[in-house]
Amino acid sequence: MIAPLRSARVVAGLLIVLLMLVCALGAPWLASHDPDEQDLVAMLLPAVWQQGGDWAHLLGTDGLGRDVASRLLYGARVAMLVAGTASLGAAVVGASLAYVAGYLGGWVDWVIGRAIDVWMSFPPVILSLILMTGLGTGARNVILAIVLVDWTRFCRVLRAEVIVTAHRDYVTAARLSGFSHVRTVLREIVPATVPLLVTVLTLEMGIAVVVEAILSFVGLGVKSSQIAWGQMIADGRDAVYQAPLALLAPVGAIFLAVAGFNLLGDGLRRSLDVRMVEGRE
């Protein structure tokens, strides 16, 4: 448990993720303004360190006079909620299928493998857009769409690991000593794949943040009454000449969140020594 904490990446990643969680959970107390409050007298204010800045609005205001800093804090709520639940959901679906496919082999493995082929023949962005057309907007549907698109990431990587583990002697020994199939998988195989699972899960959280931002940016993510970073970017684009921070602040927030998860996942991969397919795919 302690070993990963010696890695600078893990510590840096954890700190960033914790900061994001504090922002998300503490938004109602940390925010200086109601994020939806429109102050039409104070539209497009610059940040406090720029000419004409106002201490009341640290990062300035957007085209409707809403406080950028407060919206940023509230946007973290959706981002963290989606990152946490969607990647857990995808992990549960993908990993369960991977254990079944890798352990049983045969036609079950074949069917699951072909399902992955079909899924992989779609660019993920396109697939999630199509799903969102069907599901309609809303945070819950964004989560569902990410689970339905990204389960393959877990399934592909874990399946290979399960096949290797299932052929180990100690697994055979467990079977010979009378363990049932279910018990063998749960007690012998699952624990061996946990480091890989945790690593993929962490990296997936970063991907989920990006997907949620993309969907909200094109207007197919959370409901328009909810505050999301992707939506802030879409709004901020219209006034980029007058108030660049309304665009740059959510861009920075997304980068920071994704970098946090990536540093953490990358550090975990090194310190837990797991082999896996590279890449933000």
């Binding site: 970063g206 990006v210 931002a213 993309i214 997304i254 980068f255 970098a259 990536n262 933000r280």
Partner: peptide
């Protein structure tokens, strides 16, 4: 790692 945290958009 940081570059990987910047998606295309």
């Amino acid at each position: 790692t940081l570059m990987m945290s910047v998606p295309e958009f």
